[in-house]
């Protein structure tokens, strides 16, 4: 998958590059600086910002899945969703300290998780949405795991050894998440009338959040150039979407029409209403005791 990185890079669509040049697009002022030193810093900052997107997606979804514990439809599912949550948490924890090295702040995992405000989080909107019914969770997990499955595969030969290491472990975990979601979508889609109706509604619900996963934000494009990842997000889409479409069809469901609105802005720290509440819950104990260790 990552055998020929230069070829992959060349496949980044032109429009994406144009997007990057658009004024006001995720501007870290440093990219405009001219001196060698600052562009070196910028390159590192860019890597950090890219990894932050990867880590924050995992972290925020881990947090949401943690809400299922004691609330799942059966005890086996409490355990399974707990497993997925733990895997994602592990991915985020693997990346945060590395980000602290790359951005030069030397921050640790809890500095990132507990002490950043909403505007500093780079996750997509899909993962921050409130917990819905079990069908919604499986629709979200199907898309997210299908995305992560391609993403981590494209990071296996990353120029960053820490990212390559995290991806190497994660790619196996995510295959299980994808499998788990796939099987539930099949059971629910092809189960009872009620479960079919709910699963279809859930697939429809997820649709507006999908584009954001595969959007070529400037940091991702920089990351491709730096060899952090073999493919830009848009290049991950075809295979991920194929998995989702095949599952939806087998589940006797239909893919929704193109949604009338789309989530956007997560990678720029522009979030939706549930995000602030998620952070309040995640962070309030740590922030109530500044400087404390746990």
């Amino acid at each position: 998958m990552s055998a020929d990185r230069s070829e992959d890079t060349s496949r980044v669509p032109r429009s994406a590059w144009a997007e990057r040049a658009r004024p006001g697009a995720q501007g870290r002022g440093a990219t405009e600086a001219v001196s060698e030193d600052t562009s070196e810093l910028a390159a590192q900052g860019g890597s950090a910002a890219y990894l932050l997107g990867v880590a924050d997606d995992a972290m925020v979804y881990a947090q949401r899945l943690g809400e299922w514990m004691t609330n799942a439809p059966q005890i086996e599912e409490d355990m399974a969703l707990g497993n997925v949550s733990l895997d994602l948490l592990g991915q985020a924890r693997g990346l945060y300290p590395r980000i602290g090295e790359l951005d030069g702040t030397d921050r640790g995992e809890d500095d990132y998780a507990m002490f950043r405000d909403e505007r500093q989080w780079r996750n997509v909107h899909l993962v921050e949405q409130e917990r819905g019914d079990f069908a919604r969770e499986m629709a979200r997990m199907l898309w997210f795991a299908a995305y992560q499955n391609e993403l981590y595969a494209a990071q296996l030969a990353s120029s960053d050894p820490v990212l390559a290491g995290v991806a190497g472990k994660a790619v196996k975990e995510v295959r299980y998440h994808l499998d788990h979601a796939r099987h539930w979508v099949l059971r629910l889609g092809d189960g009872t009338d009620e479960s079919h109706r709910r699963m279809q509604a859930a697939i429809d619900w997820a649709a507006p959040y999908v584009d954001e996963l595969f959007e070529d934000d400037p940091m991702s494009l920089e990351a491709v150039q730096a060899g952090l990842v073999a493919m830009a997000p848009s290049q991950l889409r075809a295979r991920a979407q194929h998995v989702v479409e095949a599952t939806v069809a087998e589940a006797t469901l239909t893919m929704p029409e193109a949604p009338g609105w789309r989530s956007r802005g997560g990678r720029d720290g522009l979030h939706s209403r549930p995000m602030g509440f998620l952070l309040a819950e995640l962070q309030h104990i740590a922030r109530s005791h500044p400087g404390a260790t746990w």
Partner: peptide, 24 residues
């Protein structure tokens, strides 16, 4: 279980999640 989302550090969150999972 109702402390998983509020654990004060990520390490504690992971340990607590695994514990509640063990109980299941």
């Amino acid at each position: 279980g109702n402390w998983i989302t509020r654990a004060p550090s990520l390490r504690r969150k992971a340990i607590l999640t695994a514990k509640v999972q063990d109980e299941a």
